[in-house]
């Protein structure tokens, strides 16, 4: 177990040596992730752990990957996708070009789910899906569009629950233990690293999804990220958060109206 003081040291090392600022992440969570990695990698002492992090850039990659949480799914929370499908896409359809931002997209399952929705609504050809994450290795995976075959049963069930009518397996080709999603789904995706803590707005969107990322941030950082989203969202655009996240306590909330009380989707009204 790592002490609070040691957590502070690692946080300042990350900032000082690599420019990664994790100081405003939820502290209990960060501490747990660091302790977990420390014992997983069997360092004989904290000093060696710290030395490795400070001096080995390869290890930094692993460190960032392990202290952030990357778990994701296709059509995660199917009812959320159902609302996108039945209520939001028809609004987006009125735009000549639909710009969507997936902030913290991890390995891309969410982005492929969105591409499937758009393609079924015959909107994919006029959409752009910006998929960003702090972690280049998850983006690398996302851009390949190759996922484990073992997950497909679950994803197919999620897809059907989200209102999908096709045969889910028609979207990919299976090979050994993996499946590769069809190239046409990928055509409108743009992958780029973007750090929500330190990077700025880079475009205006009609829909921003940032799901299951903000739970790892403290209130101060959440507030900062909300104003970044507010700045990057067109008037009447939509902001979608994870099932346990809310805009309610943020200062921008007065400019937003929750689309439905069940799903975490807000519309910018001014």
């Amino acid at each position: 177990m790592i002490t609070d003081e040691e957590v502070d040291w690692l946080l300042s090392d990350l900032l000082e040596v690599y420019g990664y600022d994790f100081t405003d992440y939820s502290r209990a969570s960060i501490k747990r992730r660091m302790s977990r990695l420390f014992s997983l990698d069997r360092f004989p002492s904290f000093a060696e752990f710290r030395f490795k992090l400070r001096n080995d850039e390869e290890y930094l990659k692993r460190f960032v990957e392990e202290i952030t949480v990357n778990v994701t799914e296709m059509f995660r929370d199917p009812t959320f996708y159902k609302v996108l499908r039945t209520e939001i896409l028809s609004v987006l359809a009125t735009y000549p070009l639909i710009r969507i931002w997936h902030a913290g997209c991890s390995t891309g399952e969410e982005v492929y789910s969105m591409a499937i929705l758009l393609s079924e609504a015959n909107l994919l050809h006029k959409s752009l899906l910006y998929a960003t994450d702090i972690n280049p290795s998850v983006l690398e995976k996302a851009s390949r569009g190759i996922f484990p075959l073992s997950q497909m049963k679950q994803y197919s069930e999620n897809y059907i629950q989200s209102g999908g009518k096709r045969d889910f397996s028609s979207y990919y080709t299976a090979k050994y233990e993996y499946v590769k999603f069809h190239e046409d789904l990928k055509q409108k995706m743009i992958f780029a690293t973007h750090n929500l803590v330190s990077d700025r707005s880079f475009n205006e969107f009609q829909l921003i999804l940032c799901r299951n990322v903000l739970i790892y941030f403290d209130q101060h950082l959440q507030e900062r990220v909300f104003s970044l989203f507010d700045y990057s969202l067109e008037s009447l655009g939509f902001l979608a958060l994870g099932s346990k996240e809310t805009l309610r306590f943020s200062t921008i909330s007065t400019n937003y109206r929750q689309h439905s009380s069940k799903e975490k989707i807000w519309r910018k009204i001014s």
Partner: peptide, 10 residues
């Protein structure tokens, strides 16, 4: 958390 708030973690 130390400030007596909750965090969730998936």
């Amino acid at each position: 958390e130390k400030d007596f708030t909750f965090s969730l973690d998936f």
